[in-house]
Computed example of a mutant assay.
Amino acid sequence: MAKLPLIDTRPVKDKPARGTKARAPADRAAHPRPSKRAVGATERRAAIVAAGLDEFTAKGFAATRLDDVAKRAGVAKGTIYLHFKDKEALFQELVRTALGPLIVRIANPPIGVGGGSARAAMEALAETFAREVIGTKRADIVRMIISEGTRFPQLAEFYYREVVAHGIAGMRKLIEYGIARGEIRNPGLAEFPQLLVGPMIVTVIWQGLFGKQAPLDVAAMLRVHLDLIFEGRAT
């Protein structure tokens, strides 16, 4: 058996240089480096989620098979079950991964920062949506929920809870902020924030069905929609 190295327990007389802080062994123990095994498991999980996103958006929820996900991810099918109990759990995780950070931003709009206008905040939101949703797999996820949500109500319920409810809450905050500033004159809009987000969903559906025949300038369309809400008043 190899001998353990001796630990010098004598007190250190020299003080650390000003501006530096000696790191105690306890600190290193509290923040150990992840093992190669843990890193490998994290990488395999990420590969499974990425493969699931590709399979779900290409084939839809019903037609996606975990065998195909495993093949695309380069893992054994049993490896998937080490991370997700079933296909639905995998889908839920990829929704959180793909849409979670975006929804956090939408649910917490930067209203009142520097006295900015509600319209400016909504224009920024519209630009973010056009850039980060349209033409990406995020839009494919939305289309899949629309097409298969009635067949799989548990997916629709999950999507509403994780995505839609937070998005609607963020829209309502923006609308109420615009009403308080006098930018939006119709207070009824706060009761139906779906009217604000509706054109965004229309663009997702339109681009998926008719994008090749008649592609939309999504950002320009959403600016026209904001003209209607703000009655033509500029930012």
Results as ranks from 00 to 15, higher is better:
Gly178Trp: 01
Ala26Asn: 08
Gly115Tyr: 06
Gly116Leu: 01
Met1Asp: 03
Gly78Ile: 15
Leu222Thr: 02
Lys3Leu: 09
Ala107Gln: 00
Thr64Leu: 10
Val164Glu: 02
Ala70Glu: 07
Asp140Ile: 07
Lys71Asp: 12
His31Thr: 12
Tyr160Cys: 05
Ala126Lys: 07
Ala30His: 11
Thr136Ala: 02
Asp27Met: 12
Ala118Ser: 13
Ile201Trp: 13
Leu125His: 11
Asp140Cys: 09
Pro215Trp: 07
Tyr177Pro: 05
Lys87Gly: 03
Ala126Thr: 10
Glu183Phe: 10
Ser147Lys: 15
Leu53Ile: 06
Gly167Ser: 04
Phe61Asn: 08
Phe158Ile: 09
Ala190Trp: 08
Ile80Phe: 03
Thr203Arg: 10
Arg28Met: 15
Ala17Phe: 14
Leu4Gln: 09
Val142Phe: 15
Glu148Cys: 14
Ile229Lys: 02
Pro25Lys: 13
Met200Gly: 06
Thr42Ala: 13
Gly52Glu: 01
Gly115Asp: 02
Ala121Glu: 03
Leu4Cys: 00
Gln207Leu: 12
Leu99Tyr: 06
Glu123Ala: 13
Lys59Asn: 15
Tyr81Asn: 05
Ala220Glu: 15
Leu66Ala: 10
Ile175Trp: 01
Gly74Tyr: 01
Thr79Ile: 07
Val164Trp: 11
Leu189Ala: 06
Ser35Leu: 10
Ala220Gly: 14
Glu132Gln: 15
Val164Gln: 08
Glu132Ile: 08
Leu102Thr: 13
Ile134Arg: 03
Ala120Lys: 12
Met144Lys: 03
Pro101Tyr: 04
Leu125Val: 08
Met171Ser: 10
Leu155Cys: 04
Ala130Leu: 06
Leu209Glu: 12
Trp206Val: 13
Gly112Asn: 03
Gly112Glu: 02
Met171Ile: 00
Arg105His: 05
Arg223Tyr: 06
Ala63Gln: 14
Thr57Val: 09
Ser35His: 02
Ala30Asn: 07
Leu196Arg: 00
Phe192Ile: 13
Asp217Pro: 04
Leu94Thr: 10
Ala130Ser: 13
Gly208Ser: 05
Glu157Tyr: 05
Asp227Lys: 00
Leu174Pro: 01
Arg44Val: 00
Pro32Val: 10
Ala47Val: 01
Ala139Met: 15
Asp54Ala: 10
Glu191Ile: 04
Glu93Val: 03
Ala130Met: 05
Lys36Ile: 11
Pro32Gln: 08
Pro11Gln: 03
Asp86Leu: 05
Glu93Arg: 14
Ala214Asn: 12
Ala17Trp: 13
Arg143Gly: 14
Ile48Ala: 01
Gly19Ser: 06
Ala17Pro: 10
Asp54Met: 04
Asn186Thr: 14
Pro109Gln: 00
Ala130Phe: 05
Tyr159Ala: 13
Leu94His: 03
Leu53Cys: 05
Gln207Cys: 06
Glu148Met: 14
Ser147Met: 14
Lys173His: 01
Val113Tyr: 00
Glu176Lys: 03
Arg223His: 08
Val197Cys: 09
Thr20Glu: 02
His225Tyr: 06
Leu6Trp: 05
Ala2Arg: 12
Ile205Trp: 08
His166Tyr: 01
Gly40Asp: 07
Leu6Ser: 09
Arg37Leu: 07
Gln207Met: 15
Glu132Phe: 09
Gly208Lys: 01
Val104Asp: 13
Phe129Val: 12
Gln207Ala: 09
Gly112Trp: 00
